[in-house]
């Protein structure tokens, strides 16, 4: 008999509304974000109260997702507004850049372009 692998809340990781053996969480309990976590060749869903570094939370009627920030961004408000860049990049007007415009200099501690 085909292995029934879908659990509703029972037997799921905490925060899951529904889950399955191979995909992990499929839907989350209210207010939580579903984050698709890569672990080697596996990619499973986990339900979190807030999204991890490098992702931001996007709410919508049928589900709340963790969405990847823009490239070179460590912490962001949304796809186009970075709050903190990765090492080696510098924040200027919400974007991460490799170098700073004229009149500003890169600050490695702040990872920003500063006057």
């Amino acid at each position: 008999q085909h292995k029934q692998n879908v659990g509703v809340s029972t037997g799921c990781q905490s925060g899951c509304q529904t889950c399955s053996v191979y995909n992990g969480c499929l839907t989350c309990k209210p207010k939580l974000f579903i984050h698709l976590e890569r672990d080697g060749m596996r990619q499973i869903g986990v339900c979190l109260a807030s999204c991890p570094n490098g992702f931001y939370g996007m709410r919508s009627p049928d589900r709340n997702d963790c969405i990847k920030c823009g490239s070179e961004c460590d912490t962001c408000f949304n796809k186009n507004f970075c709050l903190r860049c990765r090492a080696g990049s510098y924040l200027h007007k919400g974007k991460c850049q490799e170098s700073c415009p004229e009149g500003l200099v890169p600050s490695d501690t702040k990872r920003e372009c500063v006057p």
Binding site: N23, L36, M41, Q43, I44, G45, D65
Partner: peptide, 8 residues
């Protein structure tokens, strides 16, 4: 072989 979650 790489798995993708349906929501991905």
């Amino acid at each position: 072989l790489m798995q993708s979650h349906p929501l991905s």
